[in-house]
Amino acid sequence: MEIDPLIFRLSIFILSIFVGYYVVWSVTPSLHTPLMSVTNAISSVIIVGAIIAGLAGNSQNIFNTSSIFGFLAIALAAINIFGGFLVTQRMLAMYKKKKKDKK
């Protein structure tokens, strides 16, 4: 009997939870705020679903219900992607070590 592809996706999901668990515990507490903003940015990869919906409309009818929601979701996710990565970049740039040549 063939295995349902869902099972494979479920395996990926469960294993990723474990990967996430170990990776996140190793994040230093001082970077917890950038962690939140970057997880925010990457969870906006949901934009792929929005793009599929946005591209689905045919040329006679670009704005059907499905693609309109797709377009809106694209805009929301794009705010998050750009905003999330850039603000993370901005924060991380501020973390500096002690300068050796003090005085």
């Binding site: 990723s16 668990y21 990776v23 969870s43 949901i46």
Partner: peptide, 10 residues
């Protein structure tokens, strides 16, 4: 999306 969701969720 599945990998990311799991990462962010945990």
């Amino acid at each position: 999306l599945i990998i990311t969701g799991a990462l962010v969720g945990s």
